[in-house]
């Protein structure tokens, strides 16, 4: 059974909107949480400005546990928690919750890796000038790591587009849902093709925005 494209387009547009909502919302929440955890992870390291062995080990442990779990399994595994927090396990909002958790920990690692590549001498220079740890975080660590950080976030958003499609197949809505129900289960190749094309365009766009932004920030 083929879809009737004249009436099907609005559904595609809506699904695209849902996918964008999932990705953007996850990126925003995930960045806020992820950057915070990443910074904490970095500054609590041994010999760093707020060295704290316990906090570092704890955060490191949680990240190492969650990151290797395949997203589709994680999604299902925490569905009870999702119901508790969001109130339902289907729909866009219900997809954003597990996506945000996974994105946060991924972003935390990306942030940590970018911070590690900052020359420790620069941090020391700020300390020697009398900068407080908080001051160093906001006026040295973040600005110095921002360019590569944006590239890292771009990389994460591209995989979020992927995650949103996965979430879509299990009731999250969006393009993944459309591709699954119309393209796959009803064997409509044209729907599959259109959703794939839209996803490709979205990925390209995200990459382009990220590249431009980071280039602008690094100014060279």
């Amino acid at each position: 059974m083929k879809v009737d494209w004249s009436s099907f387009w609005p559904q595609i547009v809506e699904a695209t909107g849902q996918t964008i909502t999932m990705v953007v919302a996850t990126l925003i929440f995930g960045s806020i949480i992820g950057i915070t955890i990443g910074l904490l992870l970095f500054v609590t390291r041994e010999n760093n400005i707020l060295e704290n062995r316990f906090l570092f080990q704890l955060l490191n442990f949680i990240i190492n546990i969650i990151r290797p779990i395949p997203f589709i399994i994680f999604l299902v595994a925490i569905s009870q928690l999702t119901r508790l927090v969001v109130g339902t396990t289907i729909g866009t909002a219900a997809a954003i919750f597990p996506m945000t958790i996974v994105a946060s920990f991924t972003i935390a690692r990306v942030v940590e890796n970018n911070l590690v590549s900052i020359d420790p001498g620069v941090i020391e220079a700020a300390q020697a000038m009398g900068a407080s740890p908080l001051r160093i975080i906001f006026t040295v660590l973040i600005p110095e790591a921002l360019g590569p950080l944006i590239l890292g976030l771009t990389f994460v958003s591209v995989s979020l587009i992927d995650f949103s499609a996965v979430a879509g197949t299990v009731g999250g809505g969006g393009l993944g849902h459309i591709a699954m129900t119309y393209g796959y289960q009803r064997f409509d190749g044209s729907v599959m093709l259109v959703t794939v094309l839209i996803l490709i365009v979205m990925v390209q766009l995200a990459q382009w925005i990220g590249n431009t932004l980071s280039k602008w920030i690094m100014r060279r």
Binding site: D119, E124, A125, P143, E144
Partner: peptide
């Protein structure tokens, strides 16, 4: 190694 802020 000078330790200048590269972003500034």
């Amino acid at each position: 190694n000078f330790n200048l802020f590269n972003a500034r």
